[in-house]
Design a protein around this nucleic acid. Structure first.
Lengths: 405, 405
DNA sequence: GCCACTTATCCCAAGGCTTAGGATAAGCTC
DNA sequence: GAGCTTATCCTAAGCCTTGGGATAAGTGGC
């Protein structure tokens, strides 16, 4: 059983001080670029990384020798030697990402080119205690292992996207605090102990990581990725990297107060963002005003939005109010983080953005200072509502990239 | 007249990719360490920077040859060759920092060891328009220049701590937006054009920079420095560096909404932090409940706090309310940034922290999530309420450190 | 088919940097 | 003054990046 002493997800990547660590640093930069781009060329690497062509070539040669990268055909270069296409060598490694929810776990396996090669869901319709979730996870992993016996030895590690705060204590043990689900603190080892390196991070952050790599936040140095669902989550990108704060709980937005002494939140405090724009809050507000709807999820929210669009004044008022609360929350974040982009995800977010994107954008502008308000785009998560496991699967990839070989 | 194309204050210090830039990087690290420590030794530099002794020695030799560092005596080393003390060569350069307020400018000159060598105030008791402030600044600089003719040729640059957002537009021109003072946007060049390199940054950020270098936030990787005065400001330290966001307006806290549809703020919106814990707001609230006091500043606030301590129920209620609003604001920040330290500065902050520090700390803990709430210290700004100009004077120093010679 | 041309890639020597380890300097204690 | 300790300096070795020339592998025109 391999245990690593708490590999911090995406560690600060200490700045190089020796010639050798400089090389490692450049190598990491190149490998990241190749995995990120999926297909690229030596010249492109040199250009984008700022390295000379000679260095790019030398690093690529090393990566090919290590089996991480391969040449995959070539394209003609208008009147010259054809350009070799470089790709991650997909079958050289696999990574697993798990979206851990209160009703079960969705586990996905990707190859090094980040193609999904297998997936497994385990869980039910009811909310489950942590121990049951751990069992679900174990069974899903067992299924994946059974179906992919040839790939399993190449498993880089497992990334968990978790519904709560993940902290590393002084002894190096990582603990999940999922208070809002009513779970007692549980150590990551207890949750997943399967003979592979396990990485763990808050699910909103893993989703943000996915959007940062392959989605709507791609290439942004400063972005906010909001995850709106039953609860609300946030991933903050600052200086091109995901913010973690001193103990990796930065970005806890759901329990920011937007109304002093306001509505009671399930966290026990009053006036939290989540108490206004979580799905339950929205639908409760509608019901309280006499709204009639079925179910409690995607469908019900759709009825609300359609009703508002169709002229139902009560539905319209609830939608308007929801937009205002959302904007108050996001406006504060714009002032604080000065992002160039806001990405809205989560199933509530996707539903809202289907028709209301423009209104939300205007409302957020109105809720923040004029200067930062004119400097951001608002867009919808490109990877759909379901990118937590993709982002989690990137954690072992990041570890591979930053590793000191 | 020297004009630089908008030197971004404390630029991202692009990661080194060549051997030469690595050297520059290490050199910067060592120089920073020497200026920061004021007195250190070669061995200490090697230890703290992670460089080998040989490299530390070689870099120090280079800095001495450049005239930036000098040996300044030695201390005995229990039974060995004495240890040479290294210091910045104080008289090799000077830097100027200016605290630009609405009633005038406070300008201070420091040598390379960050000893204050001169200061000048220019302004009056009334609020002044931007043009008048520019004239004040020019006259203060002229006075300093006249009194320090021998130092002036060694001036590294001038740093401005400004009461608003400083942005660089696409043409590279830096503009100050000081909306809350009623100033029209004004270019930095217009504000200060004196034949030296001019750096500019929001005043709350420069204060935070001062606390980060020499004050209560020293050594923190993640800290919040709140500046409470008539308005409220914030400097955010993340990953050891001051956060600036995509266009350098990150950290605008004063107009974060803490009460939806709450009190009207001078920014035109409702419910902003500043409308509750700015000095005017606090004293207005007291007056509205019949509080009797004289003046509008330090003295009046003292009367409020003393009254509360002495049993005056109205004063006690106002103080309690102020603490609650402050904590709601700070609690949100704790959730979002997960700091290891909060530093309270500004004259209102200093007054509050004189006797209420413990209560504030507890209240902030109560206003944020349990996990991040248990992980921060709360302390008072060590450099007093007046460190904006010190922080501003650090801007040319940072440019010197990061410069590409 | 052949030649001129273009572009990508490889190879090599030069130069810059860090570092380990030995040599030297400069004090202390006995 | 001998022996010891600690700081500092010096040097050769090993990496790394890079510019520039050499080579590979096409296209287009004739």
């Amino acid at each position: 059983m391999i245990k690593k002493p708490a590999v911090q997800a995406a560690g600060p990547a200490a700045k190089p001080s020796t010639v050798t660590s400089l090389r490692q640093h450049n190598r990491a930069r190149v490998l990241r670029q190749i995995i990120l781009a999926r297909e690229t060329t030596r010249a492109e690497i040199a250009r984008d990384s700022g390295l000379s062509a000679a260095s790019a070539i030398s690093i690529v040669a090393e990566l090919i020798a290590d089996g991480l990268v391969e040449e995959k055909g070539s394209i003609s270069s208008q009147g010259g030697r054809p350009i070799a296409i470089l790709s991650p060598r997909a079958d050289s490694a696999v990574t697993i990402g798990a979206d851990i929810g209160e009703r079960g776990v969705a586990v996905e396996m990707f190859d090094l080119a980040m193609n999904r090669v297998d997936r497994e869901f385990s869980g039910g319709r009811e909310e489950e205690p942590a121990a049951q979730i751990a069992a679900d996870l174990a069974s899903a992993l067992t299924a994946l292992r059974r179906r992919n016996p040839d790939r399993w030895p190449n498993l880089l590690g497992i990334g968990l996207g978790l519904p709560g705060i993940v902290e590393t204590d002084d002894a190096g043990e990582r603990i999940l605090y999922a208070q809002s689900l009513g779970w007692d603190p549980i150590s990551i080892t207890e949750l997943c102990d399967v003979g592979a390196v396990v990485h763990a991070e808050n699910g909103a952050k893993t989703q943000a990581r996915a959007e940062l790599w392959y989605g709507a936040a791609r290439g942004s140095d400063h972005a906010l990725v909001a995850l709106l669902g039953r609860g609300v989550g946030l991933g903050v990108v600052a200086e091109g990297r995901l913010a973690h704060g001193s103990r990796s709980s930065a970005g806890e937005w759901g329990h920011t107060v937007i109304e002093y002494n306001g509505r009671l939140c399930r966290c026990g405090k009053r006036g939290c963002v989540e108490a206004y724009i979580g799905s339950d809050a929205i639908l409760d507000a509608w019901a309280a005003r006499g709204g009639q709807f079925e179910g409690s999820g995607w469908g019900a929210l759709g009825q609300l939005i359609d009703g508002a669009a169709g002229g139902d004044p009560v539905a319209a008022a609830v939608v308007q109010e929801t937009i205002e609360y959302l904007s108050a929350g996001l406006g504060a974040l714009v002032n604080l983080y000065n992002p160039e982009r806001i990405v809205i995800g989560g199933w509530v977010g996707l539903r809202l953005m289907e028709t209301l994107g423009e209104r939300i954008h205007e409302a957020v502008k109105g809720a923040c200072l004029a200067r930062p308000g004119g400097q951001f785009d608002l867009s919808v998560a490109e990877l759909g509502g379901d990118s937590v496991s993709l982002g989690a699967a990137l954690l072992p990839i990041e570890a591979l990239i930053d590793q000191n070989p």
